[in-house]
Structures are given as structure tokens and as C-alpha cells.
């Protein structure tokens, strides 16, 4: 464990806590893409299939449980909670995310570390996570004004993978035979997708203005 990876995990955790706060405090999920939440639930379920078979550390197991449970809770809340689900922007959240799932699955079958069930699921989860934010970014562009908590949620979610890239660079130079090139390339793509969001987020912070993405 290094400081970059720990900071990345904490940033990821903060993003989930901010989203839970937004939904709990406002009893609303307006501006949140349910499709992105469903993709993230799939990412965690596919990536953490080894949670019961391979023990890495208490920290690792606890964080996996927290990520899976919180994301499933958010999806359930957006689908089932009679107050929250009324505020879901159903007509704006129209990204065809099934294509993202299909493309990630095909790519995982073609490019993986080993042709085993677990490794292909892992590669699938890495590719899917890289594009999982797309429905959310499209929704933000369509919904005009973005409320603070939603903006912070997306910001922390984007920042965490950027910190992971620093972690991979650090591990590359400090650990012999360390190679996580699938995660690294995918992580670069994932972080790049946030580039324009980061730009407008910085502008809104600098000008102390409301975050607004151009349509």
C-alpha cells in the first residue's frame, strides 16, 4: 500500500459518501444518472468475485464490501425508494449503457492477462469502469445547472483514478516485475474522460460561479 493508492481509495470512498449525503439530505436523485450507478454496481460485482476466495487484507475486504453495498443501496434507492425515485431524471438519463457493457465484455474476451473466468471478469470490470461515467457526464450536460454535491461527487470520482495512476507509476518504479498495464491504460482513458468536466469544475471554483457544462 502506498500513499497514492490510499489517497485514491479514500477519495473514491468520499465520492460515494457525498452521493449518499446528496440523496439522503435532499431526498432527491435529480442530476444523478441511475445508469452510471448500475454500471458501477456491475463493475464492483465483477471485480470483487474473489472477495470470499482470496483474502488480501482486512482493509481490502472491508472496502470491497463497502463499495458493493453502497452502490447497490444507491441503485435500490433510485429504483425503489418511493420519494427518491420520483426525482430521477428518467427522460434525461437515456445513454444506451448496454452498449458499454457489451463492448467491455467483448474487449475483455480479447484482451486480458489470462484466459480464465476470474481474469476476464476482472478485465471486464476495468474496461467497464473506464466508461461507466459517460451516462452521468451526458446527464450533467443535459441538466444544465449542477448542484454542488453532484459536482463534488463527480469530481472525487474522477480524481480517485488519477491518484491510482500515480500509484501505478510509483509501483512500477519500486516493485520489480510490477505490471498492471491493462488497469493503467484503462485508468488513463477513464481519467481523460473527466478532462472537460475538471476544466469547467475548476472554472466554477475559480469564478466562484455555479458549475455549468456547455450542452
Amino acid at each position: 500500500m502506498n500513499i497514492f493508492r490510499f489517497a485514491g481509495d479514500m477519495t473514491h470512498l468520499i465520492s460515494i459518501l457525498v452521493l449518499l449525503l446528496k440523496i439522503y439530505a435532499t431526498k432527491s436523485c435529480s442530476g444523478i444518472s441511475r445508469k452510471t450507478q448500475e454500471l458501477y454496481a456491475l463493475v464492483f460485482l465483477a471485480r470483487y468475485v474473489d472477495i470470499f476466495t482470496e483474502f488480501i487484507s482486512v482493509y481490502n475486504t472491508i472496502m470491497k464490501i463497502v463499495f458493493i453495498a453502497s452502490t447497490l443501496a444507491i441503485v435500490w434507492c433510485m429504483r425503489g425508494h418511493r420519494v427518491v425515485r420520483r426525482s430521477y431524471d428518467k427522460e434525461l438519463d437515456t445513454f444506451r449503457h448496454y452498449f458499454l457493457i457489451a463492448a467491455s465484455l467483448v474487449l475483455a474476451l480479447l484482451v486480458h492477462e489470462k484466459f480464465t473466468f476470474q481474469e476476464i471478469l476482472w478485465a471486464f470490470s476495468i474496461y467497464l469502469e473506464a466508461v461507466a461515467i459517460l451516462p452521468q457526464l451526458v446527464l450533467l450536460q443535459r441538466s444544465g445547472n449542477v448542484d454542488n454535491l453532484t459536482g463534488q461527487y463527480v469530481f472525487f470520482l474522477g480524481a480517485y483514478r488519477g491518484l491510482y495512476i500515480l500509484n501505478w507509476i510509483y509501483r512500477y518504479f519500486t516493485e520489480p516485475h510490477f505490471s498492471r498495464w491493462i488497469a493503467c491504460v484503462s485508468g488513463l482513458v477513464q481519467t481523460a474522460l473527466y478532462a472537460d468536466f475538471f476544466y469547467y469544475y475548476f472554472l466554477s471554483w475559480k469564478n466562484n460561479a455555479k458549475l455549468k457544462l456547455p450542452a
Binding site: H12, D50, E54, I56, F67, W122, R180, A183
Partner: peptide
């Protein structure tokens, strides 16, 4: 040590 290629990251 863990088996090679084990995924120790989240």
C-alpha cells in the same frame, strides 16, 4: 507471498 498476478488493489 501471494500467488502471482493476484489483484491486491481495489
Amino acid at each position: 507471498t501471494r500467488k502471482e498476478g493476484s489483484k491486491d488493489e481495489l
